[in-house]
Amino acid sequence: MSAVLDLDTTTNAPPPASRARRVMPGFGLTLGYSVAWLSLIVLIPLAGVFIKTSELGFDGLLRVWTDARVLAALQLSFGTAFVAGAFNALAGTLVAWVLVRYEFPGRRMIDGLIDLPFALPTAVAGIALTALYAGNGWVGQWLTPLGIKVAYAPLGIIVALVFVGLPFVVRTLQPVLAEARVELEEAAATLGATRLQTLRKVLLPTLYPAMLTGFALAFARGVGEYGSVIFIAGNLPRVTEIAPLLIVIKLEEFDYAGATAVAAAMLLLSFVLLFAINLLQAFAARRAGRVR
């Protein structure tokens, strides 16, 4: 102790002040409150999923996860979310491009409408889409003669997830497109690139990371989506029964452990996939960085 103090006494400096080390007030209060509230509302309840799952034991867990109905539901949820996310990545890029790059009447209103899927309750979207795509609906009546079944088929789930996921892609891409510097395109043009070459080699590579982010957000939302899907899906076990619905059904049968096991599978699969997408994104960002 005294040896440590000696170092300071040589310069006649006092030991560091013992009062709070922060100038800005409120650190302890906001840290305590934020962490406590986060833990109570989010972290501890979420941990419950994994604790409950572990109660099943490995065999029990495997039994739930390999159940044909569960497998079909997981496959359906992830598969439709993937297709809808990919479709949105392309269509959303088109919409974002048009909204950022072109002037046309009603542009501001369309731009505001993009967030409709965020604001409209999912149940409302669900019944509206079902009414449209049912066999006698506005759209369905034209598709049925062609042999295309949307409502009460996997295609209907995809339609609902496209609706729900669109804003994620558009809102992710808009700022990136708005910031893309026109000089880059001008530079490419002065170097003799045609417009198509400029788009393909200069502009698009800078968009890939944002497209992937938008895809990942739409995909994650699609996997867990419930309200907009259950009305249009038809909910036939092993055919159009999504994983979140299966959780609800198991809960209604008081099979808490089974419901939790499905939930855990969803969380884990989402985590693995999002991690993979993150890696891909880092890779795309690096490539985009190199192009720039």
């Binding site: 300071d8 310069t11 400096a13 006092p14 030991p15 560091p16 002040a17 080390r21 922060r22 100038v23």
Partner: peptide
């Protein structure tokens, strides 16, 4: 000003 805390000195 007291906008930074110091590690030693007066």
């Amino acid at each position: 000003a007291g906008l930074e805390t110091v590690d030693g000195g007066r």
